[in-house]
Design a protein around this nucleic acid. Structure first.
Lengths: 260, 260
DNA sequence: CTTTGCATCTCGACT
DNA sequence: AGTCGAGGTGCAAAG
């Protein structure tokens, strides 16, 4: 067993590391780390109980548990992008001893939720004080697709004029609301990737609502804008008399050659 | 700097741990761990580039990087449930040296995606061989709600008779298809939690499709089953002549007193 | 606080 | 491999 504690380095911030700790050592280290606002990783053999929006039981197994200073807890197995169990940010953490075992208990309210990780065996406890000011710069989102059309409305169709974004209807906000070259109202629904039936349902709701809201005899066109459509979605569009325009969030040039 | 390597213990499987490694040491340790099929955690100061379905840039910051033996990569900051960057299972990992820096590179195809984590500074590299056979037992899902109604159809309404689950229509599969006491067709859409407008759109699509498919003059009822509805969803239901039944996936007794 | 819809959603099931 | 819908979805913006 090794324990390096205190004496943080100048930039890297090693705060605590214990290999093969006893339950009492783990409890002490984790409780102190949470107190300091460190990010903690725990390798160990554990069981997990969850109760809240649903409830779950997970039998014994080797897992990696991550506790973040914002109250997040993640339980990761050796597989999958998603944690097998978790608790969201804002939860209250408690590292405790119970019947000689180290337990990690996390609670929140609204909604009431509870996570209990019980360790039968501990391989390693580590804590670092991480700081990260930088924000992620992400390109290729739906809002990029919107900006593309607002910059060049003819990409949708010649003569199209955007009048508003996020225009409210009784069924929710429309991505782009505008007029075609003949002065007809146009509802545009944007999707950053290939669309299925759900997107058609969404567009349908907006078009129906706008027809209603304007109590107009005038036609309201509905256009779905996305890179592509599934067959079923195309059928549904046809049934509803709605239209589709193929368009990507980014130009191919930008997508393929980002560094020019 | 400390390095404990090899000689796995009998049940816990400490395989590699290095504090404040040099880039070359990190590359060596991580490459070997990936080779062995270990789960790797890396604490360090890094930048992250992603390009694929979208693309992103993340400037320097302290982060925890997790590499799983199934090809998953997760980049976690000190905040949030979700990783700030990631790569899904099935990717090919490469731990390499470039210009004297340790880089973690992950690639996949269909779709083509690439993640590059470049470490300016390394705090710790750890690898454990985790095994986890146990599956999560989750209660309170939509399928629990379905079973509840199939067990006791009167919970939906007196005289209701389920005829099929996952019944196919031209718009997709209906959760429960049945008949009411007067012999009318009933489409039931289930949601495990409070529903919004999207669920109404879904039910609407199914009811419309079934009307069409049966080319029947006969009325088709649509019933949304969930714990509760939002106001807008209720309005949309009324407009479409659809119905709502309040029902939870689990009985309160079970939800509140699981161990009796 | 709730509502609403996006997301590199992920995941499983089915074709 | 593509389609489809569930999810303890998480998340941010807006009311």
């Amino acid at each position: 067993m090794t324990a390096n504690q205190g004496t943080p380095a100048e930039t890297g911030q090693p705060v605590a590391h214990v290999a093969s700790p006893t339950p009492a050592q783990a409890q002490e280290q984790v409780a102190a780390a949470i107190d300091r606002g460190d990010l903690v990783t725990i390798f160990g053999h554990c069981t997990v109980e969850y109760d809240g929006r649903a409830s779950s039981h997970l039998g014994p197994g080797d897992r990696l548990v991550v506790c973040k200073p914002d109250g997040t807890t993640l339980v990761h197995t050796d597989e999958g992008h998603q944690p097998v169990n978790w608790q969201p940010p804002g939860c209250t953490q408690d590292a405790r001893l119970r019947d000689g075992q180290f337990e990690l208990h996390s609670v929140r309210s609204t909604p009431e939720e509870e996570l209990l990780v019980t360790f039968e065996e501990l391989f390693q406890v580590t804590a670092y004080n991480l700081t990260d000011e930088r924000e992620l710069a992400l390109v290729g989102t739906e809002s990029d697709l919107r900006d593309r059309i607002l910059d060049e409305p003819a990409l949708l169709e010649p003569g199209f004029s955007p009048l508003a974004t996020e225009r409210e209807t009784s069924a929710g906000a429309v991505d782009i609301f505008g007029e075609d070259e003949r002065g007809r109202r146009v509802v545009v629904e944007l999707k950053r990737r290939r669309v299925g039936p759900d997107a058609v349902g969404q567009l349908t709701r907006y078009v129906d609502a706008l027809q209603r809201d304007l109590h107009a005899d005038a036609e309201v066109r509905g256009i779905l804008v996305a890179p592509s459509v599934t067959d079923r979605a195309r059928e549904l569009l046809a049934e509803k008399g709605l239209e589709f325009v193929a368009l990507e969030p980014e130009t191919d040039a930008v997508a393929d050659e980002p560094t020019e």
